[in-house]
Design a protein around this nucleic acid. Sequence first.
DNA 1: CTGTTAGCGCGTTCAT
DNA 2: ATGAACGCGCTAACAG
Lengths: 353, 353
Amino acid sequence: MTVTLADVAARAQVSPATVSRVLNGNYPVAATTRERVLRAVDELDYVLNGPASALAAATSDLVGILVNDIADPFFGIMAGAVQSEIGGPGGRAGGERLAVVCNTGGSPERELTYLTLLQRQRAAAVVLTGGAVEDPAHAAAMGAKLRRLGESGTRVVLCGRPPAPDTGAIALTFDNRGGGLRLTQHLLALGHRRIGYIAGPEERTTTRHRLEGHRAALSAHGITDDPHLTLHGPYDRRSGYDAALELLRRDPDLTAVVAANDTVALGACAALRDRGLRIPADVSVAGFDDLPFSMDAVPALTTVRLPLQTAGARAGRIAMGREDAPPGGIATVQGELMVRGSTGVPDPGRGGA
Amino acid sequence: MTVTLADVAARAQVSPATVSRVLNGNYPVAATTRERVLRAVDELDYVLNGPASALAAATSDLVGILVNDIADPFFGIMAGAVQSEIGGPGGRAGGERLAVVCNTGGSPERELTYLTLLQRQRAAAVVLTGGAVEDPAHAAAMGAKLRRLGESGTRVVLCGRPPAPDTGAIALTFDNRGGGLRLTQHLLALGHRRIGYIAGPEERTTTRHRLEGHRAALSAHGITDDPHLTLHGPYDRRSGYDAALELLRRDPDLTAVVAANDTVALGACAALRDRGLRIPADVSVAGFDDLPFSMDAVPALTTVRLPLQTAGARAGRIAMGREDAPPGGIATVQGELMVRGSTGVPDPGRGGA
DNA sequence: CTGTTAGCGCGTTCAT
DNA sequence: ATGAACGCGCTAACAG
């Protein structure tokens, strides 16, 4: 039924071993023989059996990419960048590698499950993107899993994620804390004092680091952070919308809102507009990530730009062994403050009466 | 070095076959035996060898998803939806299946390459998303490929893509033509007569169908389409920005711009604003797809909503054989006109002098 | 319900 | 430069 390597060998009048050699191009083969084999491959429409190949060679051409939410451009951009770098020479049978994108939905269990699945497939490499969940038990389980993966020959790279000590995993970490710090400093410099903060989900490193930066900026300014002005929620528009309304209820004199990311910020903007508030005249709004649509928001969103594309591409190259790992296996990637129209000087009329 | 099924069998004092049976859960196994095996698996930290399993069973747990651009939420949403439906019972070893997301970048060659790679992996199913390239040679090659995939047991589903006759592939097609028609009808009903059209890349079915709908609406209104008012370009913001400026140059009295999709529409909006034109007072703008950010544009974008999530999920279920294919193997999915703030009655002052 | 026996299709030693 | 033989780890018949 299905044509195998042996069929090709028979048609080309050579041994199966020779066919395997021309297909993988790892051993010297006479030009005329190669010709003949390739012709037979073509005539028979032969397609290599990946599983058999992987079994015999004890490695596959699969590269795993773990993301929280593939529908979110934040992850889509990174996944695309990783994927664009994993092709090329070095792999089996022509250097084509397949990206296996796994949607964890932010669930720790699914994260572990997918890693097991990838281990099962003998993935050549695994790239984990996005923040980690901070539960100690989960962190331990992940650490053990990553170590095992590394030991069995799968290269592991963390992209936009804190390092996993003692696992051998390479980490490209985003400086979320520094970004959060600079963003709030910017607001403080404009004169804002009553700043609401819409944070991401609890127990996630990204959420905590960005929030830490925010608080560090406040306290450096001698402002005691009011816990009532910090709300947690998922990284989606709805969360931003609801939280903005709630913040306004808690402090009607708010002059600025900082959101966990751009998507949340857009939701917050919608809420403010629906309440008849102008941005930034009445309330300034800032986001994080600088996703493509943020530039087209009206007014354009002040945010912290993360080099998602660049970082993803680099993670992909490191995963393929085509670029050296950073010294110590850890590199910190900086975000860049993008000041745009959504933040401005606070209205002196607000905040007083 | 690596622990195999035989090791587990030895530890659990059973035969390898029994271990395989409890792992796959396809045959009845005594509860106590199962216990013992599972304990051994746990103690040994055993992980099934996917390639070996796939080789022996002649099928894998991989499901391919072809997308044009994973960084584009249009595809991210569909890919996520497909992925959310491919798990569950029925697969090998616990019913977990892995989504292999392949970024074609819209390139016909890469599309074919990825299909070969998926065929090589003996993928359980393949879902192709997005429009197709209209080159006859490529269509023929794709047809042959899809047929072969189907013959070798891989279920093929097209999602948001025109049917591929005689390939056995199931198609969930978006009614791009109807959506384009209704969108332009809406504009005509508002009183617009000079409408610019920023189309997608040439030679793509999506581009052609949406454009056909637009033209059909125009001619039904007795308006002869001015070819100068149609521009082609990629599905990105930049294309929308540049094209809007060019359209304005070609016809300064334009009262409306229809874009190939929402991303392009946002770029067009930016260009219009930069030229000092108000939306919709001076120029109305409409998009297509209704991606999440379109609702938060200012003004909110009038567009045609495509049920990406629903369609993707359905494609996933059909691919897994968990839902019957539509009659004839083809279903047409309608888009819904979403009238929002970006379109309005044209300014009588424009278009005249 | 469980063990035994054969391969699945390919890569890779060894020879030649 | 090429061929022969073996084994990768697992599943799928068959027995029992």
